[in-house]
Nucleic acid binder design. Structure first.
Lengths: 205, 205
DNA sequence: GAATTAATTGAACGTTTGTTTTATTCCTTG
DNA sequence: CAAGGAATAAAACAAACGTTCAATTAATTC
């Protein structure tokens, strides 16, 4: 009827996040009820409201965590120096690794934006735009110094992002391909889109 | 209280389809209620059940229409003969035009698959696989006769499809770019992914 | 112009939804 | 071992959900 033995706020919140990402990725945000989520966590629905004020803020929190993690991962992985081709290869490698490792939360962040209210939506989009801006800058740098051959920088950036994010749609580890295999092949295709002349040498991250 | 003047089953069904695609694309399948849809059509919710036995079959019908239209469009647009590079350019052009023209129904078909039941899901996936198989075959043909330079055919096919489908995420006509501009640039990037040596000449569809 | 069919309404069904409130128990600190 | 805050359960709320049914009117057929 009340607090259960061994209950701990920190663990419960983490369990809620984990279960929410998994359920929302599978069924979609609107299709997952608070009771269903609570059941997955092993708790009553009312307990969820101790950690998140409502359903939408829970979604927002998951997305924010994902986007901030992605940006932080890139800041940590970005080579301090190196030519644009090397940096671009690192960008692709980091992006693929991050998204393959967090397939569920990627799906949530990419597909459930429409369930956010106006302000929260634009907050997430701001993070996304900042991340995409990193790629655009790399492409501009490389085009300027002649390492890349690019007709339209903004368009090529979108094409690359969509291509390398799309890996989570079909790829399942333990397939005929390992994560490293896929990452290497996608890096090579990224180089092609950037118009890198010397295809060898770069990356292998 | 009953049948309204000028009512016509054919027109009503078309209006339901149109409104459903629009609303589902914007809010997601689960978030759209039958009453909301009926309101958009200008009809009572009960009237919807004259045309579709339930909500899920309505979704299935929309997706099926989309996928069959896509396959039919490609069969009509496919060049009777020509080298693989020309055929590939035509594939990309057709895909982009079709998806840009039907942004809403593309969004529905790509994002709402999880709301389908087992059998209906696999029916749609079968159509999708058939369509993707067309692209894989083009890539195989071109690789075999030396027009393309491709490391992994299946993976390249997925990359191309995701790249050119992704156009609907960001592209809005009447932007700085026309549909023809975008189509041409995406065709060129498709050629790069296929490893076409002679970049000029092909396509301009 | 009567009989029949097609199209739609309005009300109702039982569930389920997100959320709030109140009470109860565990855990920690002194 | 007492006190107080943290964590949860249980019950309740109105609103909204997908769907069904009987009644009613418009169009079509004979």
């Amino acid at each position: 009827m009340a607090r259960t033995t061994g209950s701990d706020g920190g663990k419960t919140e983490a369990a809620i996040r984990r279960a929410a990402v998994k359920l929302i990725a599978r069924h979609g945000f609107e299709a997952v009820s608070m009771r269903q989520l609570a059941g997955e966590v092993g708790v009553q629905a009312a307990a969820l409201y101790r950690y998140f004020p409502n359903k939408e803020q829970l979604l927002y929190s998951l997305m924010r965590e994902h986007m901030e993690g992605l940006i932080a991962a890139w800041q940590a992985a970005r080579p301090k120096d190196g030519d644009p081709a090397t940096i671009l290869a690192a960008f692709a490698a980091n992006h693929i690794r991050f998204h393959v490792e967090r397939r569920h939360s990627t799906q949530v962040s990419n597909m459930e934006l429409r369930s956010l209210g106006r302000d929260r939506l634009s907050a997430i989009l701001k993070l996304r735009t900042a991340y995409e801006g990193q790629l655009r800058q790399i492409l501009r740098d490389g085009a300027q110094c002649g390492v890349f051959d690019i007709e339209d920088t903004a368009l090529t950036a979108m094409a690359i992002i969509q291509m390398i994010t799309g890996v989570i749609v079909w790829f399942r580890p333990d397939d005929r391909l390992s994560v490293a295999d896929v990452s290497r092949k996608y890096q090579a295709m990224t180089m092609r889109l950037a118009g890198v002349t010397n295809e060898t040498e770069h990356g292998h991250v």
